[in-house]
Design a protein around this nucleic acid. Structure first.
Lengths: 217, 217
DNA sequence: GTGCACAAGATTGTGAGCAATCCGTTCCCT
DNA sequence: AGGGAACGGATTGCTCACAATCTTGTGCAC
C-alpha cells in the first residue's frame, strides 16, 4: 500500500499546504491537483484521504476536500493536547535518555543561546524545533511522537507567531533551559512540569497576540 | 469524499478487527474483504487506508495490509498517552461542565456503584466506558476527544483484562469517585491528578497481569 | 542436499471511463 | 418581484481493466 510515488505526492501536497500555496478554506479539486503534481487522480485521492485523517484537510462527501481552517480556539486546543504529550516525552526522556543524547540536547541548547545573543531569532526558532525533536527522540515513545507530529502538522500556520513577540525569546530560552536541566538531572517530575510550563507560555502568548488565523480575510 | 456506503464499510471492517474475527497479524487481502463486505475493491482500499492512519492496520507497499499486533510495550505507551490526554479532559471538564452534565456524571457513578455491589462486573465495565465518555463530552475538547478515540481503538484487544483482576474493581470505583468529586467541586488540579492516578493504576494492573497480547500464539 | 535463478500465480497500484451527486442558473408560476 | 422546481455543468465516487510488484514453487547447478 502507498507506493513511493504516492507517498511522494502525499508529502508534496502537504508541503503545498504548509507553505501556504494552498490557502486555508481553499477548495482542493482532484483533477487540478493531479495535473499540478503530475500524478493520476487516484494518487491524489489517497493523498487527500491521508491528509483528511491527519486533520490537515476537511473531507465532505461528494463535495471534496478543503484546506482546514484552524480557528484560534482550535489552535489552543491543539496546543493543549500537544503540551501534555510533550510533557510526557520530557518525563520519559528524563528517565531513558542516554548520556550521549543528553549531551546532544545540551549542545542544541548552547547553540540556541548563541543565536539568541546574536539576535538571530529565525535560527533560534530552528534550534527550538531541533530541541523538541531531540527530546522526543530521547523519550523513545513512538505513540506520543506520532501524535505530536500530527498535532504539529495542524499548527504550521501559527508557528511563526510566538517567537517574534518582543521579549518572548528570552523567556523561551529560560523555559528551555529548565527543561534540559530537569532531563539531565533525571528529574521526571520537573521535566514534565517544565515542559508544560513552557508550552503553557506558548499558548498564552499565542492567544494574546492572535486574534484571527493567518489565512483568513 | 467517503460516501455513506464507504463509511459503513470502514466501520464494519473495523468491527471485524475489534471483535477478533480478523486476528492480529492476519493478512487482509483486498479482494477477499471486498467479497466479504459486499463492496467494491476501491471501497475496501479507502477503508484500509483510513485504518492504516488510525494505527489499527499496518500498510506495506505492494504487500498489502495486516492487522496490527500491539505488543505489551506498545499497549503501555498507548495507555500513557491516553492517560495524559484524558487527564486533560478531566481538567477541562472540571472547568467547563454544566450542572446538568455533572448531575449526569454523578448518576453514572451511582449506577456503577450499584453494579459493583451486585457483582456485575460486565455492566460495571460498561458504566466505566460511559463515565469516561461523559467526562470527555463535558470537557468539550474536540482535539483530545479525537485522539483518545484513536488510541482506544488500538487497545480494544486489551480492554477486557483489567476489570477482571481480583480486587481491581473496588479500587477502580474509588478512583472514579475521586475523579467525579474533583470535577463536581471544580478543582481542575485534583481532577487531572485523579484521572492520571486512575489510568496509571490501569497501566500497572495491565503490565502486571499481561505478559503477551491476546492474539499471539 | 543446498542454494540460487527463474517462471508462474497472486495481489497491489494506477489509469480511463461512467454513474451519482452537488452547485449555480434559469425558467416558471404565483 | 419572489420562491421554488428543473436543467446543465462540474466534480466526486466507483467499476473495470491492466501494468507493476511481490511471493511461491520448480528446476538446475554444484
Amino acid at each position: 500500500m502507498t507506493s513511493p510515488a504516492a507517498d511522494d505526492a502525499y508529502l508534496r501536497l502537504r508541503n503545498l499546504i504548509y507553505s501556504g500555496e494552498l490557502m486555508p478554506n481553499e477548495r482542493l479539486v482532484e483533477a487540478d491537483l493531479a495535473e499540478r503534481l503530475q500524478v493520476g487522480r487516484a494518487v491524489v485521492r489517497t493523498a487527500l484521504l491521508r491528509l483528511g485523517q491527519d486533520g490537515v484537510v476537511i473531507l465532505t462527501p461528494h463535495r471534496g476536500a478543503r484546506v482546514r481552517v484552524v480557528t484560534d480556539a482550535e489552535a489552543v486546543e491543539i496546543l493543549q493536547a500537544r503540551a501534555v504529550l510533550e510533557a510526557l516525552t520530557a518525563r520519559e526522556a528524563a528517565r531513558r535518555a542516554t548520556a550521549k543524547e543528553i549531551a546532544a540536547i545540551r549542545r542544541i541548547l548552547a547553540g540556541m543561546s548563541r543565536k539568541l545573543s546574536e539576535g538571530d531569532l529565525l535560527s533560534y526558532s530552528d534550534g527550538n524545533a531541533a530541541l523538541h525533536a531531540a527530546i522526543i527522540a530521547a523519550a523513545r515513545h513512538e505513540t506520543a511522537a506520532r501524535l505530536i507530529t500530527g498535532l504539529r502538522a495542524q499548527l504550521v500556520r501559527f508557528q511563526f507567531r510566538t517567537i517574534l513577540v518582543p521579549g518572548r525569546a528570552t523567556h523561551s530560552f529560560a523555559e528551555h533551559t529548565a527543561i534540559v536541566e530537569a532531563i539531565a538531572s533525571r528529574d521526571e517530575e520537573a521535566a514534565e512540569r517544565a515542559m508544560r510550563v513552557h508550552l503553557g507560555q506558548v499558548e498564552s502568548t499565542l492567544s494574546h497576540t492572535t486574534r484571527r488565523p493567518l489565512g483568513e480575510s
